[in-house]
């Protein structure tokens, strides 16, 4: 192989200007979260476990009929996770709350995609099939998806599900935040509008945070002083109020920094404008040029 000096210095000069041209602007990571998207506030003290939300979700998304019918309470005997046939499930916990007879009282917890403000799944998706919309929904575009399932690896709430038994055209399945519905003025998610206890409040995120804080302060002793989802993983569009510690109700204690912060910082500080590959390329060609100089012609086969 031959690598002339001219080539080499050409590359070096090119790199130099590339790197200089790169403004010294700090590559500090910035959140891409919408300022005041739609959100839902779930008040666990109101939920009675009627599973009307599950049923409404099933119909709104044309999902297959459930294994255990929506009015059968035996379903609570096991803890369920959302999957490709149900985007939301209600689980029963005994978090320690008791009645006057000293019997443990159940708390029902509805779970679904949290529609994170800086979603890991969106940052991870290889093709950008998942996007965070301005209205708050984390939206899935099946026409781009290749089925790598990296979104599922990434999601801290362990939500996206996969159609493992579809051989050719499987999809990632998760709560859509009823994207179509909430895109229309006055539209609300199916689960939120059906709830008979008004346990799910739909509205702009900032307003819901005000409502949540108001409920906490107007009912001293009723709620724990945390709004789950306000800050967890950079904040989410679905948030929860509870009378019992969240950890006893199946919620994880999560870090506050959104995971994409670390990965995107690494990726962009290493690869923005491809500066490091170009630099490495020039250095290596330089070394190659010098080391093989005396080796006339150097035409060893490769």
């Amino acid at each position: 192989m031959t690598l002339s000096r001219r080539n080499f210095f050409g590359i070096m000069a090119g790199t130099g200007s590339m790197i200089l041209g790169r403004t010294k602007k700090a590559t500090a990571w910035e959140s891409k979260a919408p300022d005041n998207p739609y959100a839902c506030l779930v008040d666990l003290t109101r939920c009675v476990g009627c599973r009307k939300c599950e049923e409404a979700c099933n119909q709104a998304n044309h999902l297959p009929p459930p294994d255990i019918s929506f009015d059968d309470k035996r379903v609570f005997d096991t803890k369920r996770r959302p999957d490709d046939s149900r985007y939301t499930v209600v689980n029963r916990y005994y978090g320690g709350k008791k009645n006057e007879q000293d019997e443990l009282l159940p708390t029902f917890v509805k779970i679904q995609c949290m529609h994170c403000q800086d979603p890991s799944c969106v940052s991870a998706c290889i093709v950008g099939a998942l996007t965070k919309k301005d209205n708050g929904a984390v939206h899935y575009d099946v026409s781009k998806c290749i089925g790598c399932r990296y979104c599922m690896v990434a999601c801290p709430f362990e939500i996206p599900a996969y159609e493992y038994h579809n051989p050719m055209t499987p999809q990632v399945r998760k709560c859509t935040f009823c994207f179509e519905k909430i895109s229309k003025t006055g539209g609300r998610p199916a689960c939120a509008s059906v709830c008979p206890m008004e346990a799910i409040t739909f509205g702009p995120r900032k307003k819901l945070l005000d409502i949540a804080n108001k409920r906490i302060h107007e009912n001293p002793g009723k709620y724990v002083h945390t709004i789950y989802g306000e800050k967890e993983m950079g904040g989410t569009s679905w948030m929860y109020l509870s009378a019992e510690p969240f950890e006893s109700l199946g919620f994880q204690k999560l870090p506050l920094a959104p995971p994409p912060k670390l990965t995107e910082t690494i990726q962009h500080s290493l690869f923005s404008f491809l500066w490091s590959p170009i630099l490495l390329y020039s250095v290596l060609s330089g070394v190659m040029c010098l080391k093989n100089k005396d080796d006339k012609g150097g035409s060893h086969e490769s």
């Binding site: 093709v127 781009k144 790598c148």
Partner: peptide
């Protein structure tokens, strides 16, 4: 999952 879609990352980029 979608073997036939393997080429899609060439068109749809997500540099993040």
């Amino acid at each position: 999952g979608r073997t036939w879609a393997i080429w899609k990352p060439m068109i749809y980029w997500n540099p993040n």
